[in-house]
Design a protein around this nucleic acid. Sequence first.
DNA 1: AAATATAATTAACAGTGTTAATATTTTAAA
DNA 2: TTTAAAATATTAACACTGTTAATTATATTT
Lengths: 214, 214
Amino acid sequence: MSETNTKSKRLKHKEDLRRKILEVAKELFLKHGYDSISIRKIADKIGISPTTIYLYYQDKSDVIYALHQEGFKMLATQFAVLRNVEEPFERLKAMGKSYIEFAMENRDFYELMFIMREPIEFVNKNYACEWEEGGAAFEALLVTVADCKAKGYFKQADLHAMSLYVWATIHGICSLKLQGHLDHVVNAHFPEKEQQLSLEKAFDTLVLNLKSIQ
Amino acid sequence: MSETNTKSKRLKHKEDLRRKILEVAKELFLKHGYDSISIRKIADKIGISPTTIYLYYQDKSDVIYALHQEGFKMLATQFAVLRNVEEPFERLKAMGKSYIEFAMENRDFYELMFIMREPIEFVNKNYACEWEEGGAAFEALLVTVADCKAKGYFKQADLHAMSLYVWATIHGICSLKLQGHLDHVVNAHFPEKEQQLSLEKAFDTLVLNLKSIQ
DNA sequence: AAATATAATTAACAGTGTTAATATTTTAAA
DNA sequence: TTTAAAATATTAACACTGTTAATTATATTT
């Protein structure tokens, strides 16, 4: 009895500290960005030694990966609501807008999830094929595009190519914006009054294009 | 006489060492990637003290920016040939393929030019509006899209929105691929025989879409 | 109470960019 | 030619980084 009691107590403590480490990492991440996450800072904030962290995570990449996972759970939650949009093309548009919103409101998370190499390489190495969270996100898009095709949209296009294309376009818009690659180009080449709306206009162009191949 | 002589000699030496630093930085960059560029390693390889580099570049970002500029010159050279393609839609397609080629053959440069934050932030801070190399690249795209419109393509679409949209799509394809975000998704959701060609198929979908709104 | 796991720590390694103070070399003036 | 000044380069130091091996402290079990 008391044996299993102490065992479960210890297990709980292990889980608590593991969560605490992640929590502090997230705090640093959200306050001062990715570069301010350091094993030593996390340890300092909790009041433990830096090396203790290595008893709970295999290395820094592992901590980063845990944050990466959190991001995908957040996105999944946001997407879940859209299953209620019946008309598939409307749902596709809403997914696009929702994705852009997520990127703009969670810049650091977006960078971690879809731009940086480190976390996804950790997935590819350690989780190979069984990465639920990532698979689910693309699956949602795939299903919606399939629904569109079933209703007569995108007749000429291939399902997989079309899905990848839509994702790539919206990711392209988000990543250029977030990483600061649009500022100069937009300032130099866009008419004054269009500068603020450049993102929206690029998205509208995608929608326009999608409509015309229906 | 001898005064201007020694002056120009000194100036030449300054330029030589400045170039040498960049050359070694590039060597490290191409051999072992971005992360292996370090002020200390560069200095070691040349046989000077690390601090000497700060007499030729204001900081590490400045060295990185110089590499960034080299990349844009490479891309401009590659694009220059395409001015000879008369038919504007053909030219647009060729630009797209050429851009993807550049990205795949110069992965590290592409990351530096279009994905990383640091170098473009250096541009935005230090060069503000007068960044020729970057402006020229987008200008080339803008002109081609304008030529397309003049020939009756993309009638409904706005010139600037359309250009940004095309860039974003192709950048999206390249960046997802280069940063390793396609591997898992393609393995999990694409039919076996389509996996190798996923990039090409996404590009073809773009072309298909562009055709149908002409 | 002694032996054994488990957990956490200290010390150390091998790096990083960057700055201030110092030394060396080259150029200009007396 | 010698001296003052300017330009160039270096050393030493600061404040960091992730990570490992060896050691100590704390629980748990015999």
